[in-house]
Design a protein around this nucleic acid. Structure first.
Length: 944
RNA sequence: GCGGAUAUGGCGUAAUUGGUAGCCGCGCUAGACUUAGGAUCUAGUUCCUCACGGAGUGGGAGUUCGAGUCUCCCUAUCCGCACCA
């Protein structure tokens, strides 16, 4: 029988499906292993060849682990809520649920064709009410908890209310939106609404007025990770800054734990670094700069915020990582959004300041980022007092100070900060050197080209810290401000709280209703809050989200929250749900969670480094605090599969003609490159007939050929329809079979590596698969396996391969494993070895990579069970033992000869043997070697 | 600007972890079988040289008997962050 991959693959896929062969049960007798892929967003375009790369790798590993006796959880589902389905709905009026369903079916069909070992019985979509019920449930828990900094743990909000009732904010060390001072009496005499307002300051999911990334084109706000260079990631539309009331997750409360947790996981250094940068921990000090007395100001109205103990006078709290430079402060800068600008601006400056603030606030995020180098700002007319030097320094406003980092106010040290330097130069503000490489190396800052930002050196012109190193100086300043009660050591994080509302339709509705203007969660018994039907998916005319269109959609007559949750909500706990997907009493049962623990191997793209992978870790840490997840970190080991780029082909049309010139002849012509469908190009040779039929324009095309061929040019680009470089896995499965596709995708190179998709090599893998098939068949293609005992040499080939495959599987080096299979097959073919005792274990080995052909051969070998249940063969060291080793003989490090030497010889004996060797004698030509280095099992090096 | 990674034949890559650089595959060359080849098989294929031989892992130094691998300094490419005080 010929190798008919099409029949074989269909047959086994059917059997696997019918027998639910990959169904996984909790089985306490077996060790668990959890392999997870980042689930896909089912877009209308279907899967391309890049998607399955990670899935194939994880599938191989999952199958391998099963063979090693583990109980493997390997689920798959769909991240189905999100913008594209909704954009499509707005354009066509089709319900997103309908298009999503259609796309999901298409994805499933495509995935099935590749032969994955997913347990589909555990599958769900994030838009299934049975699932999003638990997304909503977690949100309510976030709403009902706050973060206790002393315990480093989330706590029920009732506990906080009790604390406030007993002693007000006294002794409270919690994550909060802004510092509040509240006495027990004030709390106890506050109305329900006032109390709720106070509590909102502490909840882990809170509602607040905030500056957001507003994307008018998408009609929604976006989180920081959904905006790149001022443009939305989805769609690439401009994003503006806008103040809006939004739901926000207090991710920043977990900043330190998110950072610390990175030490305990096996992720790549680069991804850990991406997360560390995103969290952006900075150690430094908060210092209060009192406002200089000014009779024009209403002193009482000025409350500046901050944690300082200075209550008697208005003061700005600033954050600095360089307290050692406090003697070099020559001005202060506030962000344009700063609340106190209006209050402190002097009448003379008022018009100018207002104009600047208005201008700065109305700039789009994109404009602001594009003009980072441009210095702009305005003087408020007010002065602050440097608390250490008691100097008066002018207070300026500029948009280079950000409202959402630190306190939105900075002390400017132009001599030692490049941004302050540029600002001072532009507005002619004084620059004072306070750090020097050596205590005596002081120069005139007016002559400087740039600031001295170095974090090493000595303090100069710096009062009581003069002569200290920068490090000592910083320490001394912090001690001083702490004893003065005007500042403290503190840590700032770049990580911002995540805006959690989206003014869109296709997402999880919030389980929230409003009473007396305050939000309340619906009772848990009311979950899920189903997504209501609406007549149109557009926002309403009043700018309210589409859910405001829903008829009679209230909670007992109270208005519901009309926003929906963002994409990352549904993907933040899905790995927990797979452990226990049908449980309708809780997100995941204690039993299931304790058995499956967390994901052992997570495979997905690095592009989620600052989005999903942060949110999911945050979400999991919160659930860990609640005792729902037994592990602090959700993903133990993570592999980032490299992006697959497209490889486009080009033909070169001579300008003004319908004539096409082959790649290497085009220098004689003036040509324009034109994208050509990669499916009609083979190894960069154009199929001319197919090309003429491809488009009517090319019907009568003429060609200038080289060697009777038309050679196309190529370039690596993004995979996209318009570039005609999309490779669809179905076509390849059709042509070569799933097993070939699987092995080829692995053969392409290391999983982590980004690489252009290039079908050129797939023939080689296809050839190999057929050779493998041929091992089990005679010349007439009849199944033919002998029961003869294999020779020692044949056993050696087998055990060498088992060892290599095991090692490669363990280190996720699937490309080298495929090579090992090829070598093994070539060697066995050469020996014409068709012995059962060799081929049977080999079939098991390859079944993780090419499961269909393995199943078929397994059954031909006479097994009535599936190869899936076979265990990984053990290799026997005795067949791998060498009795001799071919030593490279080097002279001065250069290898000249090889000599076979028995392995049981000692170093001295080897040396003697080598020196007696004829070739060596000839090379030495009578000279005596200075030194002979013998490294057993490695090399003999003769130094002359 | 800051941070991370990578650099090996015409191409994708490999290298027992400091020990014969180029495994495996593509492509290419020659041959066999074929009406034919975008099929199959065999042999060859890092570069220079007819050869002997020499050079060679982005460039330069260093450690070592010995460096693709370790250290330092450059260069290039890719990725992440980017007025984060």
């Amino acid at each position: 029988m010929d190798y008919n991959f099409s029949d074989i693959e269909k047959k086994w896929q059917r059997i696997w499906r019918e027998k639910h062969i990959y169904k996984t049960e909790t089985d306490a007798s077996k060790q668990k292993y959890y392999v997870l892929d980042m689930f896909p967003y089912p877009s209308g375009a279907g899967l391309h060849v890049g998607h399955p790369l990670g899935y194939i790798a994880s599938d191989i590993y999952a199958r391998y682990k099963r063979q090693k006796g583990f109980n493997v959880l390997h689920p798959m589902g769909y991240d189905a809520f999100g913008l594209p389905a909704e954009q499509y709905a707005i354009q066509t009026g089709q319900h997103p649920a309908v298009t999503t369903e259609k796309n999901v079916n298409r994805y499933r069909e495509q995935l099935d064709k590749i032969g994955f070992s997913f347990d589909w019985d555990r599958s769900f979509k994030t838009c299934d009410p049975d699932y999003y019920k638990w997304t909503q449930w977690v949100f309510i828990q976030l709403f009902n908890h706050y973060y206790d900094n002393n315990l480093q743990k989330a706590q029920p909000i009732e506990k906080l209310a009790a604390h406030l009732s007993a002693q007000g904010t006294e002794g409270l060390n919690v994550a909060q939106t802004e510092p509040l001072e509240l006495s027990a009496e004030e709390w106890n005499s506050a109305s329900e609404k006032e109390q709720q307002t106070y509590l909102m300051n502490y909840r882990l999911a809170y509602l607040a007025d905030t500056w957001v990334n507003w994307c008018p084109k998408l009609g929604t706000v976006l989180a920081n990770d959904e905006v790149v260079n001022g443009l939305s990631v989805r769609g690439g539309y401009p994003v503006e800054r806008k103040q809006m009331k939004q739901w926000i997750l207090r991710v920043s409360a977990y900043a330190e734990r998110l950072l610390q947790g990175l030490e305990t996981v096996e992720w790549t250094d680069s991804l850990k670094e991406i997360q560390r940068n995103w969290i952006g921990r900075s150690e430094g000090a908060a210092v209060c700069f009192p406002l200089a007395k000014n009779d024009d100001l209403d002193w009482k109205k000025l409350y500046m915020g901050g944690n300082c103990d200075v209550q008697s006078e208005p003061a700005f709290e600033i954050f600095t990582t360089r307290p050692d430079t406090i003697f070099g402060v020559t001005f202060m800068v506030l962000c344009p959004e700063h609340e106190m600008i209006e209050a402190i601006t002097t009448p003379e400056q008022k018009a100018e300041v207002e104009a600047y603030v208005t201008w700065a606030k109305n700039r789009s995020e994109r404009e602001r980022q594009a003009e980072v180098k441009k210095v702009s700002g305005v003087f408020t007319g007010a002065y602050a007092v440097n608390p250490i030097t008691e100097e008066h320094i002018p207070i300026w406003v500029s948009d280079y100070v950000l409202s959402d980092y630190g306190t939105g106010a900075i002390m400017a040290v132009p001599a030692h900060d490049s941004r302050d330097f540029a600002f001072a130069r532009h507005f002619n503000l004084p620059i004072r050197q306070v750090v020097a490489p050596q205590p005596n190396e002081v120069s005139d800052p007016d002559t400087w080209e740039e600031s001295m930002d170095s974090k090493t050196g000595y303090c100069v012109n710096s009062g009581f810290i003069d002569g200290m190193t920068v490090k000592e100086g910083g320490k001394a300043v912090i001690e001083k401000i702490q004893t003065m009660g005007i500042g403290y050591r503190t840590i700032n994080y770049r990580l911002r709280d995540a805006i959690f509302s989206r003014q869109r339709y296709w997402g999880e509705p919030f389980p929230i209703y409003y009473k007396d203007g305050m939000p309340y969660p619906v009772p848990e018994s009311e979950l899920p809050v189903l997504l209501p039907e609406v007549d149109q998916f557009l926002p309403t005319e009043t700018g309210e989200p589409p859910l405001a269109r829903a008829k009679n959609w209230t909670y007992n007559g109270y208005q519901r929250e009309y926003s929906t949750m963002p994409g990352f909500a549904g993907s933040s706990a899905y790995y927990l749900r797979y452990m226990d997907p049908h449980n309708d009493t809780c997100l995941v049962s204690k039993e299931a969670d304790e058995y499956w623990q967390n994901v052992d191997l997570y495979v997905g793209g690095a592009e989620h480094g600052t989005g999903h992978l942060i949110y999911a870790r945050f979400w999991n840490k919160f659930l860990f605090d609640l005792g729902i997840s037994c592990k602090d970190e959700p993903f133990k080991k993570l592999i980032n599969q490299g992006m697959i780029q497209g490889r486009s082909n080009f033909v070169y049309r001579v300008v003004g003609t319908n004539k096409f010139v082959s790649l290497n002849l085009r220098k004689d012509y003036e040509t324009t490159p034109i994208h050509v469908d990669v499916n009609i190009v083979h190894n960069d040779v154009l199929d001319i007939e197919a090309f003429c039929n491809w488009m009517p324009d090319f019907k009568d095309a003429e060609f200038v050929l080289e060697d009777d061929k038309y050679i196309c040019g190529w370039e690596v680009e993004k995979m996209s329809k318009s570039k005609y470089n999309v490779q669809n896995p179905d076509d390849l499965v059709e042509k070569y079979g799933a097993d070939t596709l699987r092995m080829y995708e692995m053969f392409l190179g290391p999983v982590e590596l980004a690489k252009p998709w290039d079908t050129n090599g797939i023939e080689g893998v296809f050839r190999f698969i057929r050779k493998f098939w041929r091992l089990f068949h005679d010349g007439e293609q009849n199944f033919c396996v002998s029961d003869e005992e294999p020779t020692a040499e044949e056993y050696k080939i087998l055990h060498k391969t088992i060892k290599k495959i095991e090692e490669d599987n363990e280190r996720f080096s699937f490309n080298t494993a495929v090579s090992a299979f090829m070598i093994c097959t070539n060697e066995l073919l050469e020996k014409k070895c068709n012995k059962r005792k060799v081929l049977e274990p080999l079939t098991v080995l390859i079944s993780a990579y090419a499961p269909h052909i393995a199943e078929e051969l397994w059954s031909l070998l006479g097994h009535d069970t599936s190869v899936v249940t076979a265990s990984f063969p053990a290799f026997d060291e005795k067949y791998l033992k060498e009795t001799s080793y071919k030593y490279p003989i080097s002279f001065n490090g250069k290898t000249k000869y090889q000599k076979e030497i028995p392995l049981d010889l000692g170093v001295k004996e080897i040396e003697e043997l080598v020196l007696q060797d004829e070739s060596v004698q000839r090379w030495l030509d009578g000279k005596t070697p200075k030194k002979v280095i013998v490294v057993p099992r490695k090399i003999v090096n003769i130094v002359c």
